[in-house]
């Protein structure tokens, strides 16, 4: 599904953000990306959705090689990914329903199927009753659920989440995390960057820890070498 091979990334006018990062994530896995601020978690994710390109090495995501993507292929890759951020990134002037539908409208999804698909996915995140609400009328946790619904509406095989609970209180955090677990249980790969070590400890998912742009710990390699790729 996802493979990083000796990836180096340096931002223009910046210090190296990733140094020789390699890992492989097979189908169906849930992976935590941890590490201090500035360790390179967001950079790993932005390489996965081709917002950034590696300077060296190879990033493979569901059959696409990010370093070699043409501009036309980038949207095709993104339609196969769900992406969720700490700050939700919803459109303020659209309702929950419209925000989710938006992700289908920009693709070539058949127009008449959109309302049904939107309602189905809103139901899945437990927000069917809030469909006509605007983001400002929703709590942070609810807004993040709308964002997750939008990420899921294209049925992506991979969900990327960059500190999805970073802006949420404890209860909302639990709810959103539980939702991500359910999504993963349905077979979707989930890659989640987080600072919340309690959450990481509580769930026994694979954990990749970054420090200064390098992997310093990968539970798949360091705890069970036989299971490594």
């Amino acid at each position: 599904m996802i493979r990083f091979s000796h990836v180096f990334k340096t931002y223009p006018n910046g210090a190296p953000a990733l140094k020789d990062v390699s890992f492989h994530i097979p189908k169906g896995q849930f992976v935590f990306l941890t590490g201090h601020s500035g360790a390179g978690k967001s950079t790993v994710l932005s390489l996965l959705y081709a917002d950034q390109r590696p300077n060296n090495g190879d990033v493979k995501v569901s059959g696409f090689s990010v370093g070699a993507l043409t501009p036309r292929e980038v949207p095709r890759l993104r339609r196969r990914l769900g992406i969720v951020f700490q700050d939700f990134r919803l459109l303020e002037n659209r309702t929950a329903e419209e925000n989710v539908a938006f992700a289908l409208e920009v693709t070539d999804a058949r127009r008449e199927t959109i309302p049904n698909r939107v309602m189905r996915v809103l139901t899945r995140v437990g927000l069917a009753s809030k469909a006509p609400a605007y983001p400002r009328e929703l709590s942070g946790g609810e807004q993040q659920r709308v964002a997750i619904a939008r990420a899921l509406v294209n049925d992506p095989p991979i969900l990327l989440a960059d500190e999805p609970t970073g802006n949420l209180d404890e209860r909302a955090t639990k709810g959103v995390f539980q939702l991500l677990r359910e999504i993963n249980a349905g077979g979707t790969v989930v890659v989640m960057a987080t600072h919340d070590l309690d959450m990481v400890r509580e769930a026994s998912y694979r954990t990749i820890e970054l420090k200064g742009g390098s992997i310093v710990f990968d539970s798949a390699v360091d705890e069970a070498p036989s299971a490594a790729p």
């Binding site: 501009p71 949207p75 095709r76 339609r79 992406i83 990134r89 459109l91 992700a103 920009v106 693709t107």
Partner: peptide, 16 residues
Amino acid sequence: AKEISIMRLVGATNGF
């Protein structure tokens, strides 16, 4: 800008 960046994120083509 925000709307456009979100469109990008969910896979809208430049043409769109």
